[in-house]
Amino acid sequence: MYLIKSINELAPKIWQIWVNAPHVAFHAKAGQFVILRINEFGERIPLTISAIEGDDIRCIFMAVGKTTSALAAHRSGDYIRDVAGPLGKPSEIKKYGTCVVIGGGAGIACCPIIARSLKADGNVVKGIIGARNAELLILEDEMRDSCDELFITTDDGSKGVHGFVSDILKTEIQKGSIDAVWIIGPAIMMKVTSEVTRPVKIRTFVSLNPIMVDGTGMCGSCRVKIGDQIQFACVDGPEFDAHKVDFDLLMKRQRAYLQEEKLALEYHNKEQCKCGGPNNE
């Protein structure tokens, strides 16, 4: 059992949770993730490790499905049944020169830890974070502290530049030399944004989030196509060379359980009414 040290809503439906998990915290590096299971009926869901402090790790998630909604209903002092990790390969942190770390929506969660690690290795780090609107933008202060320069975009112009992260990336590439780029967010955002760096051949990493079960390379649920090879995001990734990723295939596989996810959420909402609260398990 793993103690929830704190939990709070950063933006509508975007939650931050700190969990006591010494075996993870002690070994975790930027780019890795955990598999978390709330209770004995729970599914195993992957969440990126967004920060580490002592024996605790932070994850940030959107409460959209059954498990994430149930997780968001927890309070500090509650326990989670299972936290396995750190899983996956860490980000390839080394000295590149100038790096850009880009986050979209809840994907911003993964950015500060990568930005800080890159900076610690002597890189100049520029951050670009974007959201649909100002209200949904998370971790602005943390990113400002972690980067040498930070740009903000919103789809509706309610904060920062009115537009997309890819627009800023284009301008930054024109302005000067960039040696490596990280793009983390929804699959479609990663697909579109990584097209900006392809023609100019800048090393670009994306963090993939396919459906996983065990998270240790045993089931192949998270298989993705990288170049002409099938790889498992849980052990070969989750970060891959953006220009080799078959994003369309990733998005297809992410959609595989839409119906079941809807069913699970309906069942969850019904059960929630019956028992008076999601914590009465």
Binding site: E43, K66, V213, D214, C219, S221, L263
Partner: peptide, 24 residues
């Protein structure tokens, strides 16, 4: 599916008892 995934979903995660168990 790989047999491993199909069997893990059912045997370990009880997907045969979805949605009582969360894994489909």
């Amino acid at each position: 599916y790989s047999a491993n995934e199909f069997l893990t979903r059912v045997n370990l995660m009880h997907a045969n008892d979805f949605p009582k168990y969360d894994t489909p």
